Computed example of a mutant assay.
Amino acid sequence: MIGIIIQARMGSHRLPNKMMKSFYNGKGILECLVDRLKNDLSEIPIVIATTHKKEDDEITLLAERMNIECYRGSEDDVLRRFILCAERYSFTKLIRICADNPFIDISSLKVLINELKIRKVDYASYRLSNSKPVILSHYGFWAEGISLAALKKVQRLTDDKYYHEHVTNFIYMNESEFDLFWMTVPKFIEDSTIRLTVDTLADFQMAKSIYKYFITLKQPTIGDLLSYINKNEDYLIKMKELINLNQK
């Protein structure tokens, strides 16, 4: 079975409490993200994976209010958190979404889910023309698909804390060990200067402003967002500055 696991916690070093800060209509970015996923992917089970820390009680309460599951696990060993979460809910394949990305592209997500269903692969996602996985980019539009078996293999192959904190890095940094399927990011997106992942207060403030337009669209696309942002030079200047300051 395929399920969506949203990685979320309150303890961000660069922007504490960013999951619950008022983002749109009194809702935080995590709630806005879950709303969109529930509306467009109602047939796919959704679980929030957070930590045992007291501050993340708020995330558990939010999940209860939104009638979705919440799994609590290790703060530092995120790989183990994902494995145990997937096992708890009987996910043999999972879609990993970072809650930092309220503008996740639903159309691309549906394609990813379908590819993960029909292909016997360890990992599926999008990458740039230079082979850089989008999870390492600043765009904020895409998720990752992973098999539970692949995550368990990573757990067996390495004890490195870096790979246990960053769930999928070992997979795409050791491609010979896994069966990967890549889709290509459209060139018009890659050529753009766009940053919509939310890591800092400056990211948050800009994303909050753009979201007011985004949420009014019936079926928003990346193209719609690019068109809107390209008409606002202030956004473009700020995004370019933030990209330079926050290279992944």
Rank of each mutant, 00 (worst) to 15 (best):
S176A: 10
K54I: 12
S129K: 13
K238P: 00
Y162F: 07
I210Q: 02
S12R: 09
E233K: 15
G145Y: 11
C98A: 13
Q219G: 04
T51D: 08
V167Q: 01
K120E: 11
I210K: 04
I135L: 08
T216Y: 04
H166N: 10
D234C: 09
D100E: 15
A202N: 12
D224G: 12
E115T: 11
E144R: 15
K248H: 12
E87S: 14
N230F: 07
E75T: 07
L217D: 00
F82E: 08
I95Q: 01
L157A: 00
S108G: 15
S22T: 14
L242I: 06
K248P: 08
I29R: 05
L245F: 08
M173W: 02
I146F: 01
D76V: 03
T92S: 15
G145M: 14
K110Y: 10
G140A: 05
K132Q: 07
I215A: 02
Y123L: 01
L41Y: 06
I46P: 04
D160T: 01
N114K: 15
T50Q: 07
W142H: 14
Q205K: 15
R195S: 12
G3Y: 09
D224M: 11
D160C: 01
R14W: 11
V167K: 00
F188H: 15
K53P: 03
E87A: 13
R36P: 00
I5C: 11
I29S: 02
E165K: 09
V78K: 02
I4S: 06
V167M: 01
L201M: 14
R14S: 13
I4P: 02
T184M: 06
L94N: 03
V134P: 00
A86L: 13
N25S: 13
D179S: 10
F188C: 07
L180H: 03
L94I: 13
R127F: 01
K212I: 04
K18F: 06
P186I: 12
S107F: 11
T184G: 04
E55S: 15
T168M: 11
P133I: 04
D122C: 04
S131R: 11
V185Y: 06
I189F: 09
Y126K: 08
R36Q: 06
E190L: 11
I6S: 05
I210P: 02
L201G: 07
C85I: 04
E55R: 15
Q247S: 09
R195H: 09
K218F: 03
L30N: 02
E177T: 03
L61C: 13
N230S: 10
L41K: 03
V47Q: 11
T168C: 11
